[in-house]
């Protein structure tokens, strides 16, 4: 464990908590893409199956349980409790266009052709594009509530911090994983446009308005 990875995990945890609080407090999931949340749930379920097979550390196991539970709670709030506030017609990204290529790529490029490894690889590829429906929704509505932009900033920062973690681990432990690094770079690049808007607008107290 290193400071970059810890900061990344905490940023990830913060993002998930911000989202849950936003939906719970405002009793609305307006501006949030349910499809992205479904993809994140798939990412956690396919990646954290090893929760039952390999024990790495208490921290690792607890965080996995928290992420899966929070993801399930978010889906419950969005699709059951506050279903009426879900923005169906703007959340129209075709997630099969993300799922199918990730499955195919995971079957072609992986470290090991075993079920667990293929699922882990699929999860890594899917996570890198899982935010697209959310960014698509923000671009369609043309704006995002400031709490949603804080959520996106924390979520984008998590994988950016992981990139620093991988640089550190390569230098300090001669450890690297090209699949995770490649997907992490793609994932972080997808947020760059948002990071620019967040820093130039939201931090100045303005609302996140995408140029029409």
């Amino acid at each position: 464990m290193n400071i970059f990875r810890l900061a990344g995990d905490l940023s990830h945890l913060l993002a998930i908590i911000i989202l849950l609080l936003k939906i719970w407090k405002t009793r609305s999931c307006a501006g949030i893409s349910g499809k992205s949340q479904v993809l994140f749930a798939i990412v956690y379920l396919t990646r954290y199956l090893d929760l039952f097979t390999t024990y790495i550390s208490l921290y690792n196991s607890i965080m996995k349980i928290v992420f899966i539970a929070a993801s399930g709670a978010t889906l419950y709030l969005m699709y059951v409790k506050f279903k009426a506030t879900y923005d169906h017609n703007h959340d129209s990204f075709r997630i099969e266009f993300l799922l199918i290529p990730c499955v195919i790529l995971a079957l072609i490029i992986n470290h090991d052709f075993t079920v667990m490894e293929i699922l882990w690889t699929f999860s890594i590829y899917l996570e890198s594009v899982a935010i697209l429906p959310q960014l698509f929704l923000v671009s369609k509505t043309g704006e995002a509530e400031s709490i949603t932009s804080h959520y996106l900033f924390a979520l984008g920062s998590y994988r950016a911090l992981y990139l620093l973690n991988w640089i550190y681990r390569y230098m300090a432990e001669s450890h690297y994983d090209l699949i995770a690094i490649f997907a992490g770079v793609v994932q972080t690049i997808l947020y760059c446009d948002f990071f620019y808007l967040y820093i130039t607008k939201v931090l100045k107290g303005k609302k996140l308005q995408l140029p029409a």
């Binding site: 690297y176 994983d177 090209l178």
Partner: peptide
């Protein structure tokens, strides 16, 4: 340099 075998990251 060893490729990551055990996925010890979240």
């Amino acid at each position: 340099v060893k490729q990551n075998r055990e996925h010890d990251e979240l």
